[in-house]
């Protein structure tokens, strides 16, 4: 009897088969619904993550911390050398800092003279990284801030230095950031100093691709890449990285953000550029009555 458990269920074989059919139909049905109406199911996914991850963060955080400590322990071997190198770099940085301060003062004076209004400073919400996507083919991280903290879909996330990705999927307490290296990520950027506007699209490698480059002759490895703000979804002028040439001889971008150590991310609050809705008061009331010429007003950007 002890080993006959599998035979005991023989009577239930038809029932079991029906159950298997039902379960399979349910799973495949969910998959098809996801294919047809992805946002709804993705919201379900965000809710599922939201229900789980904040409650297990107390386990995951220490483990992550320990693993990171183990990683940095390996670099202790080269500590003294690294220290010396850092000192040397710091000295160079001091010189740069001095130059930057002088330039900033000069810039402020000039702006004041010209009476230029720059963008108001973007405010941000800082969140810490709870989890990553868990799949080798998806590059995203989960932050511990969500709708509760006013996070919205589409906002940009950066580490201290450069752009990291954008919010895609918000739960009550968590939000997912799709990294620039994800295959689904495409953002409009500008290459400085030539000012060409291109699309930066991830392809699961450390260096995302530059697509739709009009004139490759004007671009050189080392050029700065900043977000362009086209489309009104992203704020303009956030540092993204530097142009580099990949092993496949295509232009790619070496990202400024340190993807090896994403611990805290800033989510930039950004409402998009204000739409100009009317022609203003210059055109008189008689002209306003006339049939509208020209293109219809642009549809609202979906956010």
């Amino acid at each position: 009897m002890a080993y006959g458990a599998d035979n005991g269920t023989d009577h239930f074989r038809p029932v079991r088969r029906i159950l298997l059919g039902l379960v399979l139909a349910g799973l495949v049905g969910l998959f098809l619904i996801w294919r047809i109406d992805s946002p709804r199911v993705e919201r379900l996914r965000a809710a599922a993550l939201d229900a789980v991850i904040p409650h297990v963060a107390w386990v995951m955080r220490p483990v992550t911390g320990l693993a990171q400590m183990a990683g940095s322990f390996q670099s202790y071997a080269a500590l003294s050398e690294e220290n010396r190198e850092l000192r040397r770099e710091l000295q160079q940085m001091q010189a740069w800092k001095e130059a930057a301060l002088q330039l900033e003062q000069k810039n402020a004076r000039l702006l004041d003279l010209n009476n230029v209004k720059l963008d108001p400073k973007l405010t941000f919400v800082t969140g810490s990284v709870l989890a990553d996507s868990g799949s080798p083919f998806r590059q995203s991280v989960l932050l511990n801030v969500g709708a509760r903290d006013g996070i919205r879909d589409g906002w940009a996330a950066m580490d201290g230095l450069g752009l990291v990705g954008r919010i895609s999927g918000v739960g009550a307490q968590t939000a997912r950031v799709v990294l620039l290296t994800d295959p689904a990520s495409s953002i409009p950027v500008t290459i400085q100093p030539s000012g060409q506007k291109v699309i930066l699209s991830g392809d699961n490698t450390a260096l995302p691709r530059i697509a739709f480059l009009e004139n490759p002759d004007l671009v050189r490895p080392g050029d700065r890449v900043v977000s362009s703000g086209d489309g009104g979804i992203f704020p303009a002028g956030i540092l993204v990285g530097q142009v580099a040439r990949g092993t496949d001889q295509r232009f790619r971008v070496r990202l400024a953000a340190d993807y090896g150590r994403l611990e805290f991310l800033r989510v930039l609050r950004y409402g998009g550029p204000e739409a100009i809705s009317d022609t203003g008061g210059l055109v008189g009331p008689t002209a306003a009555l006339a049939p509208v010429q020209g293109p219809p007003p642009a549809p609202e950007v979906d956010r």
Binding site: V56, M60, D132, L179, N204, T205, G260
Partner: peptide, 13 residues
């Protein structure tokens, strides 16, 4: 699953 979700290997590729 949770071990996979640990934000450790964030470098793509």
């Amino acid at each position: 699953v949770l071990v996979k979700l640990l934000p450790l290997g964030l470098n793509a590729g």
